[in-house]
């Protein structure tokens, strides 16, 4: 199978370049990650991240034939040859397909991604109705792979100011949690021309999310909450 891969090692390359590979696959190779493991066995300098190989850890996000996705759950049969592989767009490249995700995580951390509830906890669990718990579905499943944020033009332009779809999805995960007491502070934290309102509903995030989540919907709900509290 033919691959065109973005290569860059700052130690030896003046500029990034594209390298062509023809990789011999076995009949058991199903996913793109299987092919990348074969490729690395031939050329050990080819660098990428990977771990769980089942779409739950979020390590092997990359740009595959122009679209962000996870290599481990991208079926080889769906891919047009030569398969063009590039690092996630909009983040600094460390080497080959490995990007520096500091900015992405900085935005995630900026939304205070933890439950805030200062009342003394009961002896047992805090009760939550199944309906209230259902509000977290479609939110808590995020794997922080950054496919969405690095597919978002608003994030490319303002990665330091716009929280981005992944961070906003998580911001709403806590706003939506009946156990969380910091909704007002969370909304204050986002009420800003950039942090939330740079979302122009381009909806690339929905299109690329490997877990089928909908950050745009979460962003709309945050905006609704802001409107509601001013009324």
């Amino acid at each position: 199978m033919k691959f065109r891969v973005y290569r860059y090692d700052p130690e030896s390359d003046a500029a990034p370049y594209v390298e062509d590979y023809d990789v011999a696959l076995e009949s058991t190779d199903r996913m793109l990650l299987d092919a990348l493991i074969r490729l690395k066995a031939v050329d050990d300098t080819f660098s990428f991240r990977r771990s769980c190989r089942e779409g739950v850890c979020g390590s092997d996000a990359m740009n595959i034939n122009g679209k962000n996705g996870l290599a481990c759950i991208t079926n080889l049969k769906e891919l047009k040859e030569p398969v063009e592989l590039r690092p996630l767009p909009g983040l600094p490249v460390i080497r080959d397909l490995i990007v520096d995700m500091s900015q992405f995580f900085k935005q995630y951390h900026s939304i205070k991604p933890y439950l805030v509830n200062d009342t003394p906890p009961p002896e047992k669990e805090r009760l939550q109705s199944p309906e209230d718990r259902d509000e977290l579905d479609g939110l808590y499943e995020c794997i922080l792979c950054a496919c969405c944020s690095t597919a978002c033009p608003s994030f490319w332009w303002n990665p330091d100011k716009f929280v981005g779809p992944a961070g906003l999805l998580q911001a709403y995960r806590f706003i939506a949690d009946s156990r969380d007491h910091a909704t007002s502070e969370r909304l204050d934290n986002l009420e800003d021309p950039y942090r939330l309102f740079r979302c122009h509903t381009i909806m690339n995030c929905i299109d690329v999310c490997p877990k089928g989540l909908n950050p745009t919907k979460a962003i709309v709900k945050i905006r609704d909450s802001m409107v509601k509290r001013t009324v």
Binding site: Y114, E125, R126, Q128, Y140, F174, D177, R179
Partner: peptide, 18 residues
């Protein structure tokens, strides 16, 4: 397990909230 719930763990719930 209760501590983890207090930390924010999104456990599934029964009708009585447990």
């Amino acid at each position: 397990v209760y501590e983890l719930e207090h930390f924010g763990m999104p456990f599934d719930r029964n009708a009585d909230g447990t």
